[in-house]
Amino acid sequence: TGEEYIAVGDFTAQQVGDLTFKKGEILLAIEKKPDGWWIAKDAKGNEGLVPRTYLEPYS
Rank of each mutant, 00 (worst) to 15 (best):
L28E: 07
I39D: 00
V8H: 05
G24E: 02
I39P: 00
A7M: 02
Y5Q: 01
T1C: 15
S59K: 12
P57K: 11
E25N: 08
R52Y: 14
A13F: 03
D18Y: 15
L49V: 09
K23V: 08
E25G: 04
F11N: 02
N46R: 10
Y5I: 01
P51C: 14
L49N: 10
T1N: 12
L55S: 00
Y54F: 12
G36S: 04
D10T: 07
E3A: 10
T1L: 13
D35T: 08
K41F: 05
E3N: 13
I39M: 11
G24V: 01
A43Y: 09
D35P: 02
E47H: 10
Y58C: 09
K33I: 06
T20Y: 04
D42T: 05
A29W: 03
G45R: 02
D10G: 06
A40T: 04
E3F: 11
G48D: 01
V50D: 02
G48Y: 03
Q14L: 13
G17H: 06
P51A: 06
K23E: 06
I30H: 03
Q15H: 13
K22G: 06
Q14R: 15
I6V: 10
W37E: 02
T53I: 14
G45L: 03
E47Q: 14
K32H: 05
E3D: 12
D35V: 03
G45F: 03
Y54H: 14
R52S: 15
I30A: 02
W37D: 03
I39V: 13
E56C: 14
E4C: 15
Q15R: 15
D35C: 11
K32V: 07
I6Q: 06
G45W: 02
V16R: 11
G9L: 15
P57W: 07
G24S: 04
E47A: 10
Y54A: 09
K32S: 05
T12G: 06
E4F: 15
L55K: 01
G24R: 03
R52D: 10
A29D: 00
L28D: 02
G17A: 05
L27Y: 02
K44I: 09
T20D: 07
G45Q: 04
L55H: 01
I26M: 07
L49A: 09
A40I: 07
W38L: 07
S59V: 13
G48L: 02
K44E: 11
K41C: 08
K33E: 05
S59P: 11
L49I: 09
E31C: 14
G17L: 04
G48P: 00
T1V: 14
G9E: 15
I6L: 08
D10E: 06
G17R: 06
K33C: 14
P57I: 09
T20N: 08
I30W: 05
F21K: 00
K41P: 00
K32I: 08
D35F: 06
Q14M: 12
L49S: 10
K44L: 13
S59C: 13
V8P: 01
K32E: 07
A13D: 02
L28Q: 09
A43C: 11
R52T: 09
K44V: 09
G36N: 06
T53V: 13
G24W: 06
Y5W: 11
